[in-house]
Design a protein around this nucleic acid. Structure first.
Length: 492
DNA sequence: AAAAAAT
């Protein structure tokens, strides 16, 4: 899909492969009127935005990995009487010339994407209300909050004014890369607040105070910097939680996130809070609504969340050996020309075992999980993003946000289940994992490995939850069946 | 009991 709405990854990919043709997306103007429509009974205005009226330039639909974006409805709920007009161009947003130049020249954007068009005015219009924004995987959420942060920073004030908190080190770094690119001409300073070196804590302890205007990092490091008074919050204007549902979940980073939020609000009650994610389950949605106040919200129905450009499959397998065999004979051999592949497993142990098996068979795969030291993690991610490796085995460390446009195939070697109740699928993790393929409307495929009755039950629950049937590959040891599936997904 | 971030 066009890089119009692309968030990240373009940085590493564009220079190395033929530039993807850009279908033009033109959002119809009538979106605006509906969006600000107010309900009479309450303060809240609920409106269904039918934003599928987009035009694609037929002549440019040439890349085989591109497809039309799914049409979906984003439900907008605004409070109060602040009118928001959807931005049909970036000029509508009153951005600085330097920032506009970054959008056009560096990011190669032409027009705001759907989520950008709706959310940016909400972020950038006084009184700068808080925002909970849900949007599809690979639809451009990162650019929304990066642009939001850059546009709200006062370039003349050399102090931290925007803070973004992410669940992993990798995601922080990736978001920083987007910020650097988009903000290239603005002169706005930035710093990544993540652990620096593994094994040696001395260096990170002696980290100097942060004066950068935008800070992006992980919860622990940010918390420590704040408690050490090395990260001042007095001038903080925007606080962003990327993957916000996870950042505010009980089994996620709820404690750290609340602590950081409260520390900022104690000194600074008017700091705008922005929550972005592709998923917000009911429990988190409920909790989140108590954390932020007087907020606008954008939501997508869970049935509309599966990307239509992604073909999902399930493969029935008799045993563990067959799993390895399928990866070897059907994925690694057949998949040579289908772009990059991520294989998700549930545990670090599982990652190591699979890695060893494939290496023993003579295949080149790399593996990432949280037990590796930071240097190795950086190296493996960089090699994958540079296209030097084709197959990456990963735990859920990369389940969320990881943006590599050449990933066309995701394999759920283990199906994601809830930790506290293993007979419940982890719907959110499932959605995030498969969202690593089909970035930005590209075509992609997902193979779910089904070995036990339990797996089958989990798979069925996932299908019904998202109301999206998953086709079955008739025979796990038929090369033809896999070819047919990959062809149907548009990858062969 | 998991993953991740950190102490």
């Amino acid at each position: 899909m066009a890089d119009v709405t692309e968030t990240t990854g373009a940085s590493t990919s564009e220079d190395k492969q033929p530039v993807v043709p850009e279908p033009k997306r033109l959002w119809s103007e009538e979106v605006e009127d509906e969006e600000v429509q107010q309900s009479t009974s309450e303060e809240k205005a609920v409106s269904e935005l039918n934003v599928d009226a987009l035009a694609i330039d037929e002549n440019k639909k040439v890349n085989k990995f591109l497809d039309e974006p799914e049409d979906s409805r984003i439900q907008a709920v605004t409070t109060g009487d602040t009118p928001y007009t959807s931005a049909s161009t970036f000029e509508d947003l009153n951005l600085s010339p330097e920032l506009l130049k970054g959008l056009y020249v560096e990011m190669k954007f032409h027009k705001p994407s759907k989520i950008q068009a709706i959310s940016l005015p909400m972020i950038m219009t006084p009184p700068y209300k808080d925002l909970i924004a849900q949007a599809h995987n690979g639809s451009g959420k990162t650019t929304c909050f990066v642009l939001g942060m850059l546009s709200r920073v006062d370039p003349k004030l050399q102090r931290p004014q925007a803070l973004c908190i992410c669940p992993t080190r990798e995601l922080s770094i990736q978001n920083m890369e987007v910020l650097l690119k988009m903000g290239k001409y603005t002169g706005i300073s930035s710093e990544c607040a993540v652990p620096i070196e593994s094994g040696n804590n001395d260096r990170s302890r002696s980290r100097p105070p942060i004066s950068a205007q935008v800070v992006i990092g992980t919860p622990g490091t940010i918390k420590r910097l704040m408690s050490q008074k090395k990260l001042g919050v007095a001038d903080m204007k925007v606080l962003v939680f990327d993957e916000a549902d996870h950042m505010l979940a009980k089994d996620g980073f709820q404690d750290d996130s609340l602590r950081i939020m409260k520390d900022i609000q104690r000194f600074n009650s008017h700091c705008q809070v922005l929550l972005f994610s592709a998923t917000f389950d009911e429990a988190v949605k409920n909790f989140v609504s108590k954390v932020v106040k007087d907020y606008n919200q954008l939501f997508v129905k869970k049935e509309d969340l599966s990307l239509e450009s992604l073909k999902q499959y399930k493969v029935n397998l008799p045993d563990e050996l067959a799993k390895i065999q399928v990866v070897r004979d059907r994925i690694l051999e057949l998949g040579e020309n289908i772009g990059q592949i991520i294989i998700f497993v549930n545990t670090k142990h599982s990652a190591k075992m699979l890695h060893q098996s494939l290496v023993d068979l003579g295949y080149e795969v790399t593996t990432i999980h949280g037990a590796l030291n930071l240097e190795d993690r950086d190296k493996i991610v960089k090699e994958f993003k540079d296209g030097l490796t084709q197959v990456l085995i990963s735990t859920d460390v990369l389940a969320r946000g990881f943006d590599q446009q050449q990933v066309n195939l995701v394999i759920n070697y283990d199906l994601p289940v809830k930790f506290e109740n293993r007979s419940e699928p982890h719907y959110e993790v499932y959605l995030h994992r498969i969202g690593r393929a089909g970035r930005f409307g590209r075509k992609g495929a997902v193979f779910n490995f089904i070995m036990t009755d339990h797996d089958l039950m989990i798979m069925r629950k996932i299908e019904s939850y998202f109301n999206s049937p998953v086709a079955e590959i008739p025979s796990w040891n038929s090369e033809e069946d896999f070819k047919v599936a990959l062809k149907a997904a548009g990858l062969l």
